[in-house]
Design a protein around this nucleic acid. Structure first.
Lengths: 242, 242
DNA sequence: CGCCAGCTTGACGAGCTTCAAGGGTTGTGG
DNA sequence: CCACAACCCTTGAAGCTCGTCAAGCTGGCG
């Protein structure tokens, strides 16, 4: 009956994962890291909170802990997830989008920093060339992920969709140092996976059972394990070409 | 047996549609139109030609006549169309994408202009503020279309997908003055529609039959007619919100 | 200990794909 | 002018993938 009270963390999470992700786009120098660590408008939010709407003006934020997603909700309640947001990614950059196109939603407890100074510095040309390029690259990579999502939804079977998405998420987790030994924390519910893959919850469950039975992937207790990364990669590689 | 010889047109197509489309993003001044009309590296291509690959360096081009599409082709031959390209849109702008992410393919005979001067001028800050903003807006609108595509593929039925796509294309045609009286030239084959909507050709055909039977939409002889635009809009409006 | 969100399973049916074959239209060559 | 080829559209039949409904289970948290 009582609202599920949210106890915000008292301290800022480690910024290393976020910095690792940005460095994976373009190697950052110490001064860049110092600059980012200097961002001081910190905020913590519980799951299920709308972090940003894609409309101007919106102040961009940098995710430093937790998972979020870009989502659209239809009039009749259907939901479609466009993409997941992991630490080191920007939310609400005015580079893209338009009112109602999508909303950023926290999926776990999240911590973010106000990135408005970064954006302002970029526009004024005061941002370090490496950070400028990192922002540009981040946008380009997002575009590619969105195209991958289109291919998954349009031309992959349920089985392929889940394999492909799992591989993407594993590689992104690896880039922030959140994966080791083919294992990673995986906070997504099957309902969220369903909204991302365009499937029903029940069918997501069945595919996951199948993958577990085949000894390919195991998701349990908030963790994901790639049992046969190579076999998975083969299935997922029904993707690019030409 | 003989290659289906291609007779390129001898004269450049009218640029009015392309200019109308850009003006619909941001009203252009006469000098902007003069500048664009001054682009002189003209090219004509038959259908089925790869116009640009999403990788640097690629020289961007401005489509002035015909239809094209951004496509990805999978190893096993499956195809997914991301988006259609109509006159007034740029192909291969280095704003987005990455090798292999997608390819631009002509669907009809097309005519394009080399837009490298535009891009260079933009980078140097020499481009008129209106044209600069038009390019930015074009990119933003493309993002929205891509998200719409994700929603169609992920959460719409076949019936809804086709209605929604038809509405989008009609509005885009209207913006370039290529539609009148609920009617427009429509050069897409059912196979192309299938690759755009993630369906099989056979099922696209069945849905089109149904729409025709219901007196909603008629596609025949390369032309599309909206018989009941209002009813269609209601079906298609299962889209944005929040 | 009890509650609730999330996971699991079965049965059934709809939506869509696949395979197969036929028909219409357009353009090319004899 | 006709015949033919290529391409596209159309239709039927059969079956698989996936969604829906319904019910029970499990684990974590207050």
């Amino acid at each position: 009956m009582t609202a599920p009270r949210y106890r915000p963390p008292t301290r800022r999470a480690d910024m290393a994962p976020a910095l690792a992700r940005l460095s994976s786009l373009i190697p950052l120098k110490t001064e860049d890291e110092v600059y980012l660590r200097g961002l001081d408008d910190w905020r913590a939010d519980p799951p299920g909170v709308e972090l940003a709407r894609n409309q101007r003006p919106t102040t961009p934020r940098l995710l430093i802990d937790g998972w979020a997603a870009r989502v659209r909700i239809l009039e009749d309640g259907r939901r479609q997830i466009f993409n997941f947001i992991l630490p080191g990614e920007f939310i609400g950059l005015p580079l893209r989008g338009r009112p109602g196109a999508c909303v950023a939603l926290s999926l776990t407890p999240v911590q973010t920093l106000d990135a408005a100074p970064v954006w302002k510095a970029l526009l004024d040309g005061r941002l370090s060339p490496r950070l400028s390029q990192a922002v540009q690259l981040a946008a380009a990579v997002e575009d590619v992920w969105l195209m991958d999502q289109v291919v998954r939804l349009g031309r992959h079977s349920a089985y392929e969709r889940i394999c492909h998405l799992v591989m993407e998420l594993y590689q992104r987790a690896a880039a922030i140092g959140a994966a080791s030994g083919n294992r990673m924390a995986f906070p997504l519910t099957q309902e969220v996976l369903a909204d991302a893959t365009g499937l029903s919850v029940v069918h997501v469950n069945r595919v996951l059972q199948q993958l577990r039975g085949e000894g390919l992937v195991e998701i349990a207790h908030g963790h994901l394990t790639l049992m046969q990364p190579d076999a998975l990669a083969v299935i997922a590689r029904c993707s690019a070409r030409s």
